[in-house]
Amino acid sequence: MANIKSAKKRIKVIAKKTARNRMIKSQLKTAIKRFEEALKSQSFDDAKAKLRFVDKKLKQAASKGVIHKSKASRSLSRLAKKFNKAL
């Protein structure tokens, strides 16, 4: 355990940031899962709306530094490819 005041503060700050990152990643995974379920159920209008939502969430996560910008682009590209293939 840290003894120095600044080190104790860093522990608090890191815990807060970790919780935020975990929340954002969880929201992202849920959004992707809902998109894939909509795609599986053949409701393409719903899937298109959910893909737009996933795009928004991926870009937000990348801008906040939770995931890398390239990972966001790669994930969106793969999801869009799935969507276009299903049509």
Rank of each mutant, 00 (worst) to 15 (best):
K25F: 11
S70N: 11
L87N: 13
K16Q: 10
K56T: 12
K57D: 00
S43L: 03
S26E: 14
E36H: 03
L39W: 00
K16V: 07
K59L: 06
R74H: 07
S43C: 09
K59G: 02
V66T: 06
M1I: 14
S63Q: 15
K40H: 04
R34G: 07
N21W: 04
F44M: 15
K5V: 07
S63R: 11
N84F: 02
L76S: 03
N3H: 13
A19M: 03
R34S: 06
N84H: 12
Q42F: 01
I11W: 02
D45S: 10
K57M: 11
A31V: 00
R10T: 05
A62C: 07
D45K: 13
K29V: 05
I14H: 09
K57T: 06
A31T: 03
H68W: 02
E36Q: 11
S73Y: 04
S70K: 07
K57L: 11
A2L: 04
L79M: 08
M23T: 14
V66L: 06
L28F: 14
A38R: 05
K81Q: 09
S73M: 08
S43H: 06
K82L: 11
S43V: 10
R22I: 07
K8N: 14
E36C: 06
R34Y: 09
K69V: 13
K12D: 13
R20W: 10
T30I: 12
S73W: 10
E37W: 00
T18F: 07
V13H: 15
A31W: 04
S6N: 13
Q42P: 00
K29C: 04
N84G: 01
S6K: 05
K16M: 02
I67N: 01
S75C: 04
L58I: 02
K81A: 05
L28M: 14
K9F: 04
A15C: 15
K40M: 15
K64C: 05
A86Y: 01
R22W: 03
K40Y: 08
T30D: 12
I14K: 14
A80R: 06
L87G: 06
S43I: 13
N21Y: 09
K48T: 04
N21L: 08
L51K: 02
I32M: 01
K56F: 09
N84S: 06
A61M: 07
K25Q: 06
A2R: 07
K71S: 08
T30M: 12
K12H: 11
A80C: 03
K85F: 10
I11H: 00
A19W: 08
H68I: 14
V66R: 08
A15K: 14
K40E: 15
K48W: 03
S43A: 14
I14C: 08
K81S: 11
R10G: 10
A86W: 02
K56I: 09
N21S: 11
K71N: 13
S77G: 15
A38F: 00
A61Y: 01
L87C: 11
D45V: 14
V13F: 03
L87S: 07
K12M: 14
R52G: 06
H68C: 05
K64A: 13
V66Y: 02
S41F: 12
K33R: 14
N3R: 13
K8H: 08
